[in-house]
Design a protein around this nucleic acid. Structure first.
Lengths: 205, 205
DNA sequence: GTCTATATTAAGATAGAC
DNA sequence: GTCTATCTTAATATAGAC
């Protein structure tokens, strides 16, 4: 057998959580689709909350250090633009596609679910464990446009998160429509290309 | 007795749906908090899906015609800016606060929940019933910036929808965080003030 | 580690008396 | 229209054999 039970659970849970949300994905659905026993979730993870965190953490532990590195490199410059800040996210996001098929959109979906589902424990987990990187990002945005107040910045970054989450959630449908209408091959990279200037413009406005 | 059983159910359901989402609010919680019998939901509304649509429709039937009117008025002008288009949404949104206390944020929350919870029936209900208004909005955006290609417009309007939906869905949590951090009283009007320039900048970029 | 079987809780919905 | 009582289903979680 190629995959351990633990990994089978993680892979299937990830797909289902991304598609239906955490609360609307039952352990029964996960285990039956993964071809493992219902009780194995509790054996390997203890409870559902811990499974949720484990799924998200496979991405976070790849993504966050990559962002951290990119931002540190960016900050070797004395000045930079808002576009430069958002460009720093491009490669770390793309690289998630190397970890797992559709890794980029999966990750963005899961993050969004963590905010919109009732998952206080998840928000707490992310912001406390990766506080250093998150605050380096905000500092960089602020350095790119020092006229932004802390408060305006707070709101615009959340708007940005919303844009990403929703886009990735509907990316499959959107790409199909766009491919039909504009007869052009679409992929996750293409969407990110459309996204980055839009986000930079909104945040810098 | 001032309120009918039906209205008591609608009022309580609205508050609970907005706060906890549709799937995480049980009929038992609604009826006990409303002081009515559990079976009365099924008597008056048939099932939970219909109750959900009834709650949202009290707002939609006020909001959509107001947007329609505002856009028709806007289009009496030969030219207008992207800001003008998004400004057209401001008064219809504000006016929801006259229908019911906190009407604006309630409505925004419910719409957001309709997109992020698994509520396909709700998305279908909105887009089919109010298609005319929705398409008038797209036409107006295009008139505000005729340089946008169909393709760019396509993507940016979806980004915009994502920003709105996500913001609405998490507005309660965001307001609480912001109130703590910036010691300022937040309300729906304040969020709309933050949102409109961000959206206009991103779409026009 | 994995399985069956089951405990426990809570949900939506309805039947039928009043 | 309203109520009690109940049906049916499905969720998380765990005990205990293998």
């Amino acid at each position: 057998m190629r995959l351990t039970t633990k990994d089978k659970i993680l892979d299937v849970a990830e797909a289902l959580f991304a598609e239906h949300g955490f609360n609307d994905t039952s352990l029964r659905t996960i285990t039956s689709k993964a071809g493992v026993n219902l009780a194995s979730v509790n054996y390997h993870f203890g409870d559902k909350k811990t499974l949720v965190r484990a799924v998200l953490n496979r991405y976070l532990e790849a993504f966050m250090p990559a962002v951290q590195d990119a931002l540190i490199t960016l900050n070797l410059n004395h000045t930079y633009t808002m576009s430069d800040v958002f460009e720093s996210l491009r490669e770390p996001l793309r690289a998630l596609g190397d970890i797992r098929p559709n890794g980029t959109s999966r990750f963005m979906l899961l993050i969004g679910r963590g905010y919109t589902d009732v998952q206080g424990h998840l928000r707490w987990f992310i912001t406390t464990r990766y506080q250093e990187t998150l605050s380096l990002f905000t500092q960089s945005v602020l350095k790119a446009n020092p006229n932004l107040t802390q408060e305006t910045l707070f709101w615009r970054l959340h708007f940005t998160l919303g844009t990403c989450v929703f886009t990735m959630a509907s990316s499959q449908a959107l790409m199909e429509i766009a491919e039909n209408d504009y007869e052009k091959q679409m992929d996750a990279k293409y969407i990110v290309d459309q996204l980055i200037p839009y986000l930079a413009a909104g945040v810098a406005a």
